[in-house]
Design a protein around this nucleic acid. Sequence first.
DNA 1: ACCTGAACACCGTTCAAGT
DNA 2: ACCTGAACACCGTTCAAGT
Lengths: 216, 216
Amino acid sequence: MGRPAKFTREQLQEAALALIDADGLSGLTMRALAARLETGAMTLYNYVSQREELEMLVVEAVLGKVRWVPDGHLPWYEELEGIAITLWRVIRDHPHVIPLILTKRSRSPAVFEVTEALLRTLAQSGRSGARLLVGFRAVSALIMGAAQAELAGPLTLQADESPDDTIARFQALPPDRFPHLIEIATAATASDAETEFRASLSLLIDGLRADAAPQA
Amino acid sequence: MGRPAKFTREQLQEAALALIDADGLSGLTMRALAARLETGAMTLYNYVSQREELEMLVVEAVLGKVRWVPDGHLPWYEELEGIAITLWRVIRDHPHVIPLILTKRSRSPAVFEVTEALLRTLAQSGRSGARLLVGFRAVSALIMGAAQAELAGPLTLQADESPDDTIARFQALPPDRFPHLIEIATAATASDAETEFRASLSLLIDGLRADAAPQA
DNA sequence: ACCTGAACACCGTTCAAGT
DNA sequence: ACCTGAACACCGTTCAAGT
């Protein structure tokens, strides 16, 4: 429990997140974090038993930023859309943290809260048990997958290069072998990530509505 | 080009993937890979300019395992399902590589091939341009997001612990605050990842079919 | 209890030298 | 051209000692 303690957990989280946002994932080292807090590296081990625990703190810090007010007037599918987009935006604000979010098992209350809110909304579609689980898996997979799709991933369209360079790269591909790849690369230059995510989410929500149980 | 060269690219890929499969992502180090190939660490730099390039080779090795034969008789949505499940299985066979797949921009032909195949099938739903892009984003986000959902991620159900321990952990949560979380945790113990993925994918495909243009 | 420096066993990579 | 050992500048973490 508390006693003096030189730093708070929040200070660690804030400093660690700032390092990652500024310098990427590799910018977070025990030594760099200690330096930023103007202390020695070993001091951190008074707060965290391993580097990995630090990474969990960062995940928690990001997901804890989700602020979302339920609106009982909306139909479940509109409310679901709102939660999903909120989550997507928060994650996307901290792109370098995404690998950690996808990788570290977080057991923080903040994560439980937002998950329960999403499930509560989804349950209003008449789902329970295994069907609720599947709906949840689909929505969270879409959010997580989409959050880093244009960031990286195997099928990245925009790289370090300029948008023009990207499209040029795809148009340099043999058009008889990769016609559709060239087509969507072109379409991507006239689009943006949030628009694409919203439209993708709509497709899934259409499927969820078609499969919903009749409302009480 | 070729000259003698002590190793082939395939040998590097195979050895690197074997290290990751066996020891996790942290098992792949320049030194460990060199040792496995019975050479010095610096020899690797004759094949690869950075460690990151090695990681791209590994991504390529995994995605190159996708073998899928098109079946012209199937309707597009069944063919799409087949490709998606094939991709999901290949990725899931190498769980430790997932962070790399999600993170490294791969420009290998193998990745282009499977992407084009997926797009070709999706285009048969009557989509083109921006709509084709959105459909593609949705399907790939679902695959990528689902591939590591139960592996890790913020809402992980099975951890290092046994399934029974997992459900016990969730049932220890306050049931008035997290009723649905407890509900799906229970449902998850009677389920498996592939079943959940197939059902999630069906929801999305339903949405894609509802929004398809009339066939020619 | 909390703090911390020295030290250890690792990393990736540069440099310089070999064939 | 391809190979390679020594060396450098980093890591995370153990240990031991301080208050």
